[in-house]
Design a protein around this nucleic acid. Structure first.
Length: 416
RNA sequence: GUGAGUGUAGCUCAAGGGUAGAGUGCCGGUCUGUGGCACCGGACGUUGGGGGUUCAAAUCCCCUCACUCACCCCA
């Protein structure tokens, strides 16, 4: 029989790596409650339409990266490529916009995008994120950025940088895009082939081109943040003021273009210089029309999503203090049930204990003891049985004592 | 979707046309009531898969698959 491997772009997470995941998840749950966020868990799959309408049917994510399938009733369903649209859907569906306060959610979970895997990019990957609703103020955007930045700081992820921008709104963006296209067309022949194609498909992407001459040329192109309408311009200015109040160091990067259509006004990214090509650790922004576009009330939102694999890639090894572990060993197989009884006593007291069931001799058991990093080994032999004692070996100190069965509880209290 | 690199023992890697090797781990022994060291012995592979060239292929050629990295895009 041939082996079955995990599907491309997926993987198994287990010891010792799992320690980092548990650490990160604990931190998320703890940290964001500081800002009154409550966890929300939405389905892993949704109606495909939620994403095509929410994220935008022309985006790369929707056009070529979705895991879409039909269920047995012929419905088109899609494994979620991100969670914001789902959270908005859930809020609308459960009438949370009226019933909950504050309207603050955080989530942790797997997302799915059909992409070619590489460093920091998987087909099943994990994001955590936060969403705040019904607050139009630029200050809440700043708070979200502050919360994100400060979180990374608290988990000791160094080398991060905050970049902000504004992508405008329905008022100012269309006019700006026309101006940009016009400017790009004038220089069309000087741009690389890729960028010539982008003029029609996604002109904002020209700012992202790595080609040197394109960088030079596009530097002279109009920028969104220079063509914001009054409202967006004020919002962007207030955002910066609030970031200064919150002591968040940031850089304005007009090249930030979020790949999801729902963003309006504030857009931001936190990058890490420790990552490879996929240097975005976290990204987010404001989405003033998403609820409306999903058939809900006119409620604005703002938030971010962070890539957990990318964070874990640069997390230091977690030194979690392990509980003390006891190996229960027996001189010969005739004593197996006595050893098992002793194990049960330990387990029922909540102590980490382990025994081998088919070991012929003590030597073998001691070797296993090393593999489980046992702190102590309890030895049961004919002699111990006869005198109602247990021999206790301190594995590190390599010292051994003998205690009476009735003193076991006391010994455990002082040593474990 | 495009490009590049890598696939050899459980793991890390040698061998670049001539009998597939080392380190580590594993099993056993020196040591039948005691692990980290040392020494001795043992098992291990259809060299990712398929085809071709050759007297002879892990090695050269073609195809395929997988992994990795990068482009694209994103977290």
């Amino acid at each position: 029989m041939n082996k079955i491997a995990a599907p491309k772009g997926t993987g198994d997470i287990y010891f010792p790596e799992i320690g980092k995941w548990q650490y990160l998840e604990d931190k998320i749950r703890n940290y964001f409650s500081r800002f009154l966020y409550k966890e929300i868990r939405t389905p892993i799959f949704e109606h495909s339409e939620l994403f095509s309408r929410g994220i935008g049917s022309e985006t790369d994510v929707v056009q070529k990266e979705m895991y879409t399938f039909q269920d047995k009733a012929g419905r088109s369903l899609t494994l979620r490529p991100e969670n914001t649209a789902s959270v908005v859907r859930a809020a609308i569906e459960n009438n949370l916009f009226n019933e909950m306060f504050p309207l603050r959610f955080f989530y942790i979970g797997p997302m799915f995008r059909y992409e070619k895997p590489q460093k920091g990019r998987m087909r099943q990957f994990h994001q955590f994120g936060i969403e705040v609703f019904a607050d139009k103020s630029a200050r809440v955007d700043a708070e979200v950025i502050y919360a994100a930045f400060n979180f990374l700081k608290e988990i000791h992820l160094c080398g991060t940088e905050v970049e902000i921008s504004s992508v405008g709104c329905g008022q100012c963006r269309p006019g700006f895009l026309e101006k940009l296209k016009t400017a790009a067309k004038e220089q069309e022949k000087e741009l690389c082939g890729e960028c010539q194609r982008r003029i029609e498909t996604n002109p904002l992407r020209i700012f992202d081109c790595k080609n040197e001459s394109c960088i030079k040329i596009s530097a002279a192109f109009p920028k969104m943040i220079e063509h914001l309408c009054g409202e967006c311009d004020t919002h962007f200015a207030e955002l910066q003021t609030a970031l200064q109040v919150l002591k968040v160091e940031y850089k304005i990067n007009p090249r930030i273009v979020r790949g999801l259509d729902y963003y309006t006004k504030t857009a931001f990214e936190i990058t890490s210089n420790q990552l490879g090509a996929q240097n975005a650790v976290l990204g987010g922004g404001r989405y003033d029309n998403l609820s409306n576009e999903l058939g809900g009330p006119d409620i604005v939102g703002t938030g971010f999503a962070a890539g957990m694999e990318r964070i874990i890639l640069h997390l230091q090894d977690i030194d979690r203090k392990q509980r003390k572990t006891i190996l229960v060993a027996y001189q010969n197989p005739a004593l197996l049930d006595h050893a098992l009884r002793l194990c049960e006593t330990l387990w029922s007291s909540g102590i980490h204990a382990y025994m081998e069931y088919d070991a012929k001799n003590l030597k073998k058991q001691f070797k296993k003891g090393d593999r489980i990093s046992a702190d102590y080994t309890f030895i049961l032999g004919d002699e111990e049985l006869q005198h109602n004692t247990i021999s206790v070996k301190d594995m590190k100190a390599r010292e051994q004592i003998t205690i009476k069965q009735e003193d076991l509880e006391q010994w455990l209290k002082t040593n474990i």
